[in-house]
Design a protein around this nucleic acid. Structure first.
Lengths: 204, 204
DNA sequence: ACCTGAACACCGTTCAAGT
DNA sequence: ACCTGAACACCGTTCAAGT
């Protein structure tokens, strides 16, 4: 049955929230590149120009959608283990939250400015590292590494499948090629996070 | 005086190379987002449609430009120290080569597929890690970490300046905020690479 | 205050037509 | 074989006009 004025509920008032929610949904379905202002407007049964009453431009909209994607991540509690268990859990949850919405994590790779939900997670990551006795400057500089790791892990599997080049001129790469994608994406992500944290703990 | 057939030298034949070189130059001047097929064509005094004789689409063109940016990176030699010195030097040189061309490194963040010049560097990074006695699987999985680090380091300073949020709700972040950008970009990049390599060496 | 249609200045890509 | 103009189907954003 097709929507009609009789079967469809009254059009909800346009709001920043409804725009951002619709955007995040479309990113999950179509990917960031395919989400245009016109398509978001269409999904909300309004005109593209109407969106600009509530948001500044497309970049801001994508940043808001990215922040929405991590808004419901629960911070680990004391029951979840020591600082490192909790940090790993928080990273895993954030990656999972982002991965649920297509390639929205790409916004975090390109665009450094985090929203309130992102800042809340960053704050907790910093707090946990400090809890672990990591020096302040190391905590601060390590945030970039954690952020990159989170974004990259969330995008695993989103990338275009690498077309097979001829690897003859690259002997080591050729030999190790099968190992590049060995294991599960999850196991690789956990291993990378362990590398980061072990490396962090090895600094003076 | 306006160019005319008399004053302007013969238009060089359009070629894949000249297209990619012009593209990389424009990325350096204007940034990736502002480089359109039409602008590249204009720089070469031709029509946008003509480019498609030599390249498949804009994505391929950006990938080719990215590869060109790292084509002249010299691989370190025996005189440059042990495997770790050489690896750090190779990473630094690659970052510098990318940073010379605006935000071309963003292509490497989003798009996994490397070209011949990128593969040559990846192959050498793998070889050096193996030289250092790192197990094959760790070398393979670590390449992602190194690649992300290289791209992110090359983009340092390219990002939009973060507008200052009110950090009151984020106590740890507020306290550590001054440290986030302390030191030089170069010192931070070197520190991050040390974290990665120390972490790598800490794996069983 | 909020929404809209129409317009502006662009895009990437294709294709028939030219040389 | 290579190049081109014109066209197609889009973009983000602005703005006068409506309610």
């Amino acid at each position: 049955m097709v929507d009609s004025p009789r079967t469809r509920p009254a059009k909800p008032a346009l709001s920043r929230d409804s725009i951002v929610t619709a955007t995040l949904g479309l990113v999950g379905e179509l990917g960031c590149a395919a989400v245009s202002m016109r398509r978001v407007a269409q999904a909300l049964d309004t005109a593209a120009a109407s969106l600009y009453v509530h948001i500044a431009d497309r970049d801001e909209l994508m940043r808001l959608a990215h922040d929405l994607a991590v808004r419901d991540v629960d911070l680990p509690t004391g029951a979840d283990g020591d600082w490192r268990d909790r940090l790993e859990l928080l990273v895993t949850r954030t990656v999972a939250a982002l991965a649920r919405h297509g390639d929205i994590a790409a916004v975090g790779l390109t665009d450094a400015a985090a929203g309130p939900a992102g800042l809340r997670i960053i704050d907790e990551l910093l707090r946990l590292m400090r809890d672990g006795g990591i020096p302040d400057r190391a905590c601060a500089w390590a945030i970039d590494l954690l952020g990159q790791h989170i974004a990259a892990a969330a995008l695993e599997g989103t990338a275009t499948p690498t077309h097979r080049d001829d690897l003859a001129p690259y002997p080591t790469l050729r030999e190790l090629a099968p190992l590049l994608t060995s294991g599960t994406p999850d196991a690789r992500a956990r291993w990378k996070l362990r590398v980061l944290l072990d490396g962090l703990l090895a600094q003076p």
